[in-house]
């Protein structure tokens, strides 16, 4: 049961990446929110807004990273159909960002 083993490994890897990524993203947002409160003197609004934005961007990127990881595993297992499906999902997400920028 080679594929079964690979599947449970993939499950664990995905779980770990998503869990740690969420923690990191939330911590970055917290940093960006707390910094101006504890340190009101500096004109840090711009920087702190950027820190918060970076945390948000990381959170949004996590599920996409997940699809990329799945794509890598599918390619390595020579699952052609599923590699194409994962690529298709990534292409749709990419199309969304292009459309978003275009209509900004």
């Amino acid at each position: 049961m080679n594929t079964g083993l690979a599947r449970s490994q993939l499950d664990r890897l995905l779980g770990k990446v998503l869990h740690r990524g969420t923690r990191l993203g939330s911590s970055i947002i917290a940093l960006g929110l707390v910094l101006p409160m504890t340190w009101p003197g500096i004109s840090s609004t711009m920087i702190c807004t950027r820190i918060v934005t970076a945390g948000i961007a990381l959170l949004i990127a996590l599920p996409i990273l997940r699809v990329i990881l799945m794509l890598i595993v599918f390619v390595r297992e020579r699952e052609l159909r599923f590699s194409v499906i994962a690529l298709l999902v990534l292409a749709i997400i990419l199309a969304g960002s292009v459309l978003g920028i275009a209509s900004a």
Binding site: L18, I56, A57, I60, A61, L62, P63, I64, R66, V67, V89, I92, I93, G96, S97, V98, L99, G100, I101, S103, A104
Partner: peptide, 17 residues
């Protein structure tokens, strides 16, 4: 997560967030 990321990326790129 992936469903929301698809719209999240588009909203983010559009400057809605």
């Amino acid at each position: 997560g992936v469903t929301a990321a698809a719209s999240g990326v588009a909203y983010f790129a559009r400057g809605d967030i």
